[in-house]
Design a protein around this nucleic acid. Structure first.
Lengths: 370, 370
DNA sequence: TTGTTTTAGTAAAGCGCTTTACTAGGCGCA
DNA sequence: TGCGCCTAGTAAAGCGCTTTACTAAAACAA
């Protein structure tokens, strides 16, 4: 039924084994192994013999059985990557960075996506360790069990002993976004906060609050909405969510001239909702996102956002994981990555806030007027 | 240096082996193995003993060494996925579908991305097979060597003997897009074609051409641009590319009232370029994309496009690969997936084409006018 | 000539698990 | 009492490779 039960299968993998090669060459498997691995203890073997072995290996296209090798050597050159969701831009970009480094060093990786399910978040790392991964990279994943292999977390949720963290300076990111709006002259700003319980969210929000304090801007609860507030764990963020929340925000009738969104996806959804309601961006409402996803620069209007260098973060994760694998003494540490404000077209100074001016009064009238 | 050379490592994986367990239980490894695997030949072992074994396994958190197991059983429950580029929306969505099915069945997968480099396209499948993957899924990847494990190609480039193909009915997709524009009344249509040499491109283009013939629309070379024409193999498609080509198209001064783009990314870029040049979409130019990427519905204007059910295609790929692995007799086949036209806001009837009407005359004047 | 090194390898154990063929003891039955 | 059969396991080979300790022969030195 399975391949394994069809022995006549000449063409399949590793028909040609070390032993076969040895017999063909009239040498012992040991010798062949030593030569092929260029082992230092093969130094007593004359070059002529070495060449003979290598030629035979070539001829028969000998490929060592990876699994057998592991059994003796205890190395798998494999690591595990745990992400919330592959199809999401965030994880995909980080993975892309991870992959670069990993493949360069001869490592392969397994990917698992847990979609926020806590049971899978606990289960998958175990399964990966069963497969003898030499390390783990957790992307934006709230894992609280302790891991016994070197681990690196990208955007960690909380702190785990012994885990290297690659963290965006969210505090600064939040600050930058708010500063930008403040300097443009916005006073009444609406906010999309991230899901609670993640370090990202907390620290980004702190940055926003501190900047708000500094620039004398009030953070109004009625203008602050929590994304992904329902489930304890993050669904991938979608434009839909931003769309819905933005529409609700308009319905409350509260006035605001700008929206500071937790990420680009929700910003994109929000812009859609604002436009549908008849507002112009940025004339009526400025919107700033977070992440700088691939399409941000091609939105209409182009999205002002805080760039997160996700690919570089992935690379950094892979790099420091490999370091830790190669050298057990390397201490886990915190790597802080700096965000960058990218000003595009979705933000501008607010319309002057005088009676009769076109400052936004979001309300059913406004909607109806359209 | 490596983990393997630090034997005192109690907490690490598989300190507790079958043998250890057997000694602890005063049983032979054979017995323990039989019980743990619920092997049929364990039927002569009394339930009491079985329970004892299971309890001990539980107690010591025994986890069989996956690699050792493979060595006897010849199963790896691992497959390889080859994609052009992870960060791209296309591959990420397909992968997401693949993953669903695979993990459900206890399979893991390696991902490699070749970024269009032909050497890697040849190299990676070998490396994957060295790792004893039981099958391969090629996503949108031009591989021409014959593979010795069951293989499924999603959007295959050309036909490989023995490879199951998951193909979008591109012919129909092309037809749908053109038919839509034609029925709206467009006569002068610009086209972005995909990179040459891919079956996707050819057949989609054929669909376009046939529909054009049917509806009496002329396909003008001067309005037809080839995406990714430079390199023989696909770079991931970006909005940039569409932006550039659209800008060039405007510069030629050729008149057109609609653009049929090869994919959403290039459509998004093109819309950006048109807007920058002062045109309104769809009043001045209608644009239809292809793929229906996540943000398509949130573009401004919302993008009319032909939906490719990528996630489902990924699922189908995984499913039929698993079938072929489980049953060597399953013949490779062609699975045709149907595209769907999603009409949104980026298309409308063209402005009436009379003298003095606002029909687009793309030219330097038009650009200057802005 | 004898002893010492060097050369050119090899034998064999071991990695952790699976699996098949086998056995020792107990029991029923004629 | 003897035979076969069932029960409860076990022994041992094998998966393909690595590695260390060892050896036989040749080359060299004194």
């Amino acid at each position: 039924m399975t391949r394994s039960s069809r022995p006549g299968n000449k063409s399949a993998e590793s028909v040609v084994t070390l032993k076969f090669l040895a017999e063909y060459l009239n040498l012992s498997p040991a010798t062949v192994s030593l030569v092929i691995n260029k082992s230092p203890s093969a130094k007593s073997i004359p070059d002529k013999t070495k060449a003979r072995v290598l030629r035979a290996a070539e001829k028969f296209d000998y490929r060592p059985n990876f699994y057998a090798r592991h059994l003796s050597k205890k190395r798998t050159f494999t690591i595990g990557v745990v992400v919330p969701e592959i199809s999401e831009g965030y994880a995909a970009l980080v993975m892309s960075g991870i992959e670069d480094r990993l493949l360069q060093d001869g490592y392969f990786y397994f990917v698992v996506s847990h979609r926020g399910r806590q049971d899978l978040i606990e289960e998958y790392p175990r399964m990966l360790m069963d497969r003898a991964v030499e390390g783990l990279i957790l992307v934006n994943t709230p894992l609280h069990r302790v891991i016994t292999v070197p681990t690196v977390a990208v955007s960690p949720h909380g702190h785990l002993k012994g885990v290297t963290a690659i963290t965006l300076d969210n505090h600064k990111g939040g600050w930058l976004a708010l500063e930008h709006l403040a300097k443009l002259g916005h006073k009444r700003i609406a906010f999309f906060k991230g899901q609670p319980g993640s370090a990202d969210t907390e620290s980004r929000w702190l940055g926003v609050c501190e900047a708000a304090a500094k620039f004398g801007i009030e953070i109004r609860p009625e203008l602050t909405v929590q994304l992904q507030g329902k489930s304890r764990h993050p669904e991938p963020s979608t434009p839909e969510e931003g769309f819905l929340h933005a529409a609700k925000l308009l319905e409350t009738g509260e006035r605001f001239t700008a929206l500071l969104a937790f990420n680009d996806m929700s910003a994109i959804g929000a812009i859609r909702a604002f436009c549908d309601a008849g507002y112009n961006i940025p004339q009526h409402i400025s919107v700033v996102g977070f992440d700088d996803v691939q399409t941000a620069a091609y939105q209409n209007p182009r999205l002002t956002t805080v760039r997160q260098p996700l690919r570089r973060m992935g690379e950094a994760a892979a790099l420091s994981l490999l370091e830790r694998i190669a050298n057990a003494d390397v201490r886990p540490r915190e790597i802080l990555v700096t965000p960058e404000l990218i000003v595009r077209e979705s933000t501008s100074a607010p319309a002057t806030d005088e009676p009769g001016s076109p400052t936004v009064l979001a309300s059913r009238e406004a909607l109806a007027e359209k």
